[in-house]
């Protein structure tokens, strides 16, 4: 295991580079195929509105995967994540307008733990509104 960032050099309060990730209907269809999650609320407007949603929404797991990139791009080694958790607090509507939506993700070093581990707190927003709650990753740094 080799991470870009070493345990000794990180400091609590340090920010990870903030990123913006676009998300379109095509991305949702592709994720459905790759993950095997074909729940139609993620690609079919009729099903989404029939279930009481405003429109097609992203798979929560797409948003979780996207948020993780702020961590894995920062540490380099994706296998250094030892725990990762999120709450899906707001559905992410992905309109069928060709441009979709965008997820802004920021991260901060929240705590230095024993054993070379560090807890990172993530914030993910769509149009300024938080979409994930308690988004936390614990990583083991070199």
């Amino acid at each position: 295991m080799t991470t870009y960032v070493s345990y000794d050099e990180v400091e609590v309060g340090q920010s990870l580079p903030t990123r913006s990730f676009p998300l379109t209907r095509a991305d949702l269809v592709r994720y459905a195929g790759a993950s095997g999650d074909f729940n139609p609320i993620h690609w079919n407007a009729r099903s989404a509105t029939g279930a009481g949603l405003p429109d097609v929404i992203a798979h929560g797991m797409v948003t979780m995967a996207i948020a993780a990139r702020v961590v894995t791009d920062w540490i380099g080694d994706p296998g250094a994540i030892v725990e990762y958790s999120v709450r899906f607090i707001r559905p992410v509507v992905v309109p069928d307008d060709g441009s979709g939506t965008a997820i802004e993700v920021e991260g901060v070093v929240a705590e230095k733990l024993d054993d070379g581990q560090v807890r990172l707190d993530l914030t993910a927003r769509v149009a300024g509104e938080k979409i994930l709650g308690m988004a936390r990753a614990t990583v083991r740094l070199s």
């Binding site: 729940n39 609320i41 798979h59 797991m61 296998g79 725990e83 990762y84 999120v86 899906f88 308690m134």
Partner: peptide, 17 residues
């Protein structure tokens, strides 16, 4: 009723990737 299901939260703990 799976047609009304949304994902509430998710956590993974990894021994290794």
């Amino acid at each position: 009723d799976y047609s009304r299901v949304v994902h509430g939260d998710q956590r993974f703990t990894y021994t290794r990737p």
